[in-house]
Design a protein around this nucleic acid. Structure first.
Lengths: 233, 233
DNA sequence: TCGCTTTTGTGAGCAGTGCTCTCGCTTGGT
DNA sequence: ACCAAGCGAGAGCACTGCTCACAAAAGCGA
């Protein structure tokens, strides 16, 4: 037999350990210098291994980056979920804005990671499929709040122009059959608009324009909540 | 004296000519492959000059990039202005959405340029001062529409929470003393939110989510107009 | 236990990058 | 006609992502 250790052979355990070490070091460089300056050789150097050895774990630099992208999505998702849970028994609008503020806070704390996932997608044009579930986590937190409001008496239906009805019905049928189509359409827009607010602040578009960004953002988020139909505090 | 030619000596003319050629070639590479793959050496190669000669015109790669950034802002600004002029005598909401759609169309037509200016700012953290006036052009088109509505009877005042009043007054005093503070605050938010919508579509966040993006965007833009207080069609 | 295959790690090497420096040539102004 | 400034060329440095042939090492069936 063998060492009868934890599980699945020491070989496999070492592999995931080294993989994690590489990602950690890479994440550090990403946070410090940005995705553009993330260098495989520097990561290998810091880990005391030959640069070529790193290719046993990630077939290319882009693959390392997409791994970091997934981690970033999950980190942001966790932050959003944690914020939702701390405000579990507040009103719907309050819960919405609390999560919005958590997203903003995460972005300000991890600017380069945020740029990696919501800025220009550096590698190719279309995101790899692995990123989709991780990316959906934040959105899921928001839809959960909307869903709660819908089950209680806290959701007003936004107006839905006739021209947009087919698309709204399609989106609702596919992603949230239990929610009114007008709500789903309004939510998708608010979802994108929220990240417009965060991105503008983070990428310097608000420099010399918005000063008190904290309160500005909070009220913008509140207006987004109203736009989705969240009415009670 | 001199050659009595067009102006300021042939030397200077040649310089701006070569500078333009470099920018053109660089813009081509940017559009084709993205900012990450823009290579000074490739530009020089394509122009038939030594790569070191290029440094007579742009002290560094980042300087070339910021030149392209300014050009991109101006190109987007021109597109917005042109759109505004084509709808000169439509209602305020219609003019607003027409300009929004022009911004979106420009972004879809120049994805890498858009990513360069509204995606992650690649060079440093703060944008060079030269970019500010160019960046303001688009915003100025929108404020022009809002101002027109304000001078006519087409502008409703959005609600302004007490907490946001100081900031709204400050922004209004600084940028648009002729507009109500509540309008200015709502506009700044709508401005950022608009680019959230465009960015999400362009960067693939709407993949598998929004199908009929044209009409989805149009109505989202309309709702933004209403949020700012634009009421008449 | 032996032997074999698969997995890891190594170092050299290729093609490419941004950028610097020195060297000559051309040009503009005086 | 001279001299300084501007401009282009080439070599070179330090760095990058990535590939390849090769050597240890670990796992596993016999």
């Amino acid at each position: 037999m063998s060492t009868a250790q934890g599980a699945k052979g020491a070989r496999a355990r070492a592999r995931i350990e080294v993989t994690a070490a590489i990602k950690d070091e890479a994440r550090g460089q990403l946070a410090a210098e940005g995705a553009a300056k993330l260098s495989l050789r520097a990561v290998a150097r810091e880990l005391g291994m030959a640069s070529s050895a790193l290719y046993r774990y990630f077939p290319s630099r882009d693959d390392l980056l997409t791994a970091l992208i997934i981690d970033a999505y999950n980190s942001l998702g966790e932050a959003a979920e944690a914020a939702r849970d701390t405000a579990a028994d507040a009103g719907h609008v309050r819960r919405w804005t609390v999560v919005c503020e958590a997203v903003r806070a995460w972005a300000l704390a991890h600017p380069h990671e945020y740029a990696l996932i919501y800025g220009s997608p550096v590698p190719g044009y279309t995101a790899p499929d692995d990123t989709i579930p991780a990316a959906a986590r934040v959105a899921y937190v928001f839809t959960g709040i909307v869903r709660d409001a819908h089950q209680g008496p806290g959701l007003a239906k936004p107006p839905l122009p006739a021209e947009l009805r087919p698309e709204a019905h399609r989106m609702a049928a596919e992603f949230a059959p239990d929610l009114p189509p007008e709500t789903v359409a309004a939510f998708v827009a608010a979802w994108a608009e929220l990240f417009g607010l965060v991105g503008f602040e983070l990428f310097g578009q608000f420099n010399r324009v918005v000063e008190d960004r904290e309160t500005f953002f909070r009220h913008a988020a509140e207006r987004l909540a109203h736009g989705v139909g969240l009415v009670f505090p």
